[in-house]
Design a protein around this nucleic acid. Structure first.
Length: 477
RNA sequence: GCUCCCAUCGUCUAGCGGUUAGGACGCCGCCCUCUCAAGGCGGAAACAGGGGUUCAAAUCCCCUUGGGAGCGCCA
């Protein structure tokens, strides 16, 4: 018997921006499918109209596409099990709910929020687990009819069979056993008629043919409930794998407080998709290589047996490392689009500039900064640069400017002429030059930058350096 | 409170009964070098604690401790 090709899904609730934890879940599910020639489904879990918005769903899809995590089935892609927005699947849920109710697996519950809240508080106070007390579990048909006649809209609650044990094999944690007595009856349809997560999520996985579900550990204790629902409905259950959660750098759940940023924020900050992907793929999952991988490589090396059950911490330094790797590995063309600095660079020079500065940049702003220093007006001098210029003295720059004006304005020529005329070499020669030309004492190799600048700019900057050095002399004197 | 999950350098991790406990990030040093990066080389840095099982335990079992999750008409 061969393994069926996997079908995985990402089933986000569009309640806000896509964050790293959820994104990793999406990534692993996508990798599992892609690595085995399977299919990846996107399903929007928007049954809670209060909290969900179409804008958030749209943004989320944009994020996934930006990262290259396109889905094979789902919104805007179609597929054999539409619709892929849960808010459009009400009729399906109604039918399954009706069946559960007819077969006694579910019952209407008229308890109000306040009643439930009070019951929970009382249970906690008494040292009891806060579980549904079963108030409406044994309502007679007459009582139900009467309450309905009073105009009260009930929620639908799943009747958890007592005294049983639910077992399943988790791909990450191994064998799991839960006693149904620890569960408590749970809501599968709200009083407003919309389906609740536990129910719609499980039913849709079955209906959409999902074979494998990778999700966070926070769902581990939900699993027996979903298994119970599927069993009552005679629907197949997927294979589950629960991964350790990503925590903040303080060990608390990931949130804005401890450094988590949304995909939107990371994109705005200049992170490349490859950086985010490589970083996330290595949290809770180990690859054989530390080299940066593309989506295909990540999928190829992905193995659920290498998923970690333990929680891990988000580390901004590590993300930055993958950003550096991504920048170094990217083609010049890729960086050109990312840097968006065409307006700052004369046509035809972009690639050369990129290759000159790529080792010194991490974000687009860094690249644009160098573009301006090379091709813009003489750049502002920072304190170190000014000091270096003053230390070299006006005479040095006078000589340099003269040489440039004579035509020694390419790097090698200028360097040779200056060495000959001033007797300076090495650092004593090049540091003042660097300061005068780029405004800073650190940065990419001088040679390509100087040659990219061209004679006019070089001369102008050297002339300015003469003035700066002379002014200083005058002030001191 | 109850149920469940987790535990190797500061962080991400390899390890699945016998290893000098390996790698990566970060940190430190050296090399390269006009500087800063990049790159190369090297260094400091870990099996939470206690009991078992075994000839042998980071690895298997139990307890403690410490983290995390669930117990919602949120997902």
């Amino acid at each position: 018997m061969s393994e069926p090709t996997p079908k995985t899904r990402f089933a986000p609730s569009p309640t806000g921006a896509l964050h790293l934890g959820n994104l990793r879940t999406a990534l692993f599910n996508a990798l599992l499918a892609r690595g085995h020639g399977g299919r990846f489904v996107l399903r929007i879990e928007d049954t809670d109209r209060e909290r969900c918005s179409p804008e958030a769903a749209q943004a989320l899809m944009g994020n996934l596409r930006w990262l290259g995590l396109d889905w094979d089935e789902g919104p805007e892609a179609g597929g054999p099990a539409p619709p892929y927005h849960q808010h459009e699947r009400g009729a399906i849920y109604d039918a399954y709910c009706a069946r559960l109710e007819a077969e006694g697996h579910a019952y209407p519950c008229f308890c109000t929020e306040q009643e439930l809240e009070m019951a929970r508080r009382a249970q906690r106070a008494a040292g009891q687990p806060p579980r549904y007390p079963g108030t409406c579990a044994r309502l007679s048909a007459e009582e139900v009819a009467r309450k309905r006649a009073e105009g009260r809209e009930p929620a639908l609650r799943f009747r958890v069979p007592p005294g049983e044990e639910v077992r399943f094999h988790d791909r990450v944690h191994g064998e799991q056993r839960f006693r149904t007595d620890d569960l408590g009856d749970f809501i599968i349809r709200r009083a407003d008629g919309t389906a609740a997560y536990l129910f719609s999520n499980a039913v849709d996985d079955a209906l959409m043919g999902i074979t494998d579900v990778l999700r966070g550990d926070d769902h581990l204790t939900n699993t027996p409930r979903q298994l119970l629902v599927l069993a009552a409905l005679g629907l197949p259950a997927p294979r589950y794998g629960h991964m350790g959660l990503i925590l903040g750098d303080d060990g608390a759940p990931l949130s804005k407080r401890n450094g988590s940023r949304s995909v939107d924020e990371l994109e705005a900050a200049g992170y490349l998709p490859e950086a985010i992907l490589n970083y996330l793929a290595r949290i809770g999952h180990a690859y054989a290589t530390e080299a940066p991988l593309g989506l295909e490589g990540l999928a190829e090396g992905f193995d659920t047996a290498r998923l970690s059950p333990s929680p891990s911490r988000f580390d901004p330094d590590h993300l930055r490392h993958w950003q550096d790797e991504a920048v170094q590995a990217a083609t010049a063309e890729r960086l050109r689009l990312w840097l968006a600095m065409d307006a700052l660079v004369p046509p035809g020079y972009v690639e050369e500039l990129i290759n000159a500065v790529r080792g010194n940049i991490r974000f687009p702003a860094d690249g644009r900064e160098w573009a301006k220093r090379v091709f813009g007006p003489p750049p502002a001098l920072d304190a170190d640069a000014e000091a270096a210029i003053e230390a070299a003295g006006a005479a040095f720059f006078e000589t340099a400017a003269a040489a440039a004006e004579e035509g020694y304005n390419r790097f090698q020529g200028l360097r040779g002429a200056l060495q000959e005329r001033t007797g300076r070499k090495g650092k004593r020669l090049l540091m003042p030059l660097r300061a005068a030309l780029t405004g800073r004492c650190s940065g990419p190799e001088l040679q390509p930058m100087v040659d990219l600048m061209g004679g006019e700019r070089v001369t102008a900057r050297l002339r300015r350096a003469v003035e700066v050095a002379a002014e200083e002399r005058a002030q001191e004197g």
